[in-house]
Simulated assay, not measured.
Amino acid sequence: MHDIQNQDDLYLLVDEFYKKLLADDAISYIFTDVVKIHIEEHLPILVTFWSQAILGTGGYTRNLTQIHLDINAKEHLTPELFKIWLGHFYQTVDEHFKGEKAEQIKTQALSIATIMQIKIAQEKDK
């Protein structure tokens, strides 16, 4: 098993990860009913995000926090949903990759999930 090395690796990771999310009834409704993502359009955006975060390629210009706050305004993103998201993410990374970048992307995912939950809680307290 090799480490994450390029955008093709990230595409595999994100594609397999979303297959898990969309197959899990406990979280899939966020993507199918609330956000109504078009997976073919969404995957390249996610690859660009993770490529910037892990490989330093740049190119991601969206406001990740605001996107999640907007989703939360439609449907509360609970700590349980973040736990499910992280579980599927970790599992997908571990099934396909091993190494420094694989560990880095899992740490980054945990940081993102933590920050999003803090921002959502702050919004609720306003």
Rank of each mutant, 00 (worst) to 15 (best):
Q108D: 07
K74T: 12
G56V: 08
K126H: 09
V93Y: 00
L21A: 10
I67E: 12
Q108W: 07
K19H: 10
Q117H: 06
D9C: 06
A121C: 02
F49A: 01
D25Q: 13
E75D: 12
K119E: 15
K83V: 14
L64A: 14
Q66W: 00
L77F: 02
D24R: 11
L55G: 10
K36P: 03
S111F: 07
Y60N: 02
I27K: 01
T48E: 07
K19Q: 14
I27D: 00
G87T: 12
A113I: 06
L69Y: 07
L12C: 10
Q52D: 13
E16G: 03
I39H: 02
F31E: 04
I45N: 08
T114P: 00
T65V: 09
A109R: 01
W85L: 05
I118H: 04
A121N: 11
T61S: 12
K19E: 15
V47W: 01
Y60Q: 04
T32W: 11
Q108V: 06
H96C: 07
D33A: 14
T114S: 09
G59Q: 03
W50T: 03
I67S: 15
L81W: 05
A53M: 12
A121Q: 06
E41A: 15
L12P: 02
D33L: 14
E16D: 13
D94P: 04
E40C: 10
H88Q: 08
K36M: 08
K20C: 14
D70Y: 00
H96G: 02
K98A: 12
G99A: 10
A113G: 09
K101S: 09
K36G: 14
V14P: 00
H68Y: 08
E95L: 13
K74N: 13
Y90M: 13
K124W: 04
V14R: 00
H68M: 09
T92L: 03
N6G: 09
Q117C: 00
H76L: 13
Q7T: 15
G58P: 05
H88K: 10
W50M: 03
L64E: 12
N6V: 09
I39A: 03
A73F: 01
K126L: 09
L12Y: 01
H88V: 15
Y90R: 11
F17K: 06
F17P: 02
S51L: 02
E40N: 14
D9S: 04
H76R: 11
G58I: 05
K74S: 14
Q7L: 12
A121P: 00
Q5C: 07
G56L: 05
K106V: 02
T48A: 04
G87A: 07
D94E: 13
T78N: 06
K124Q: 11
L77P: 04
L46V: 10
Q66S: 12
M1Y: 03
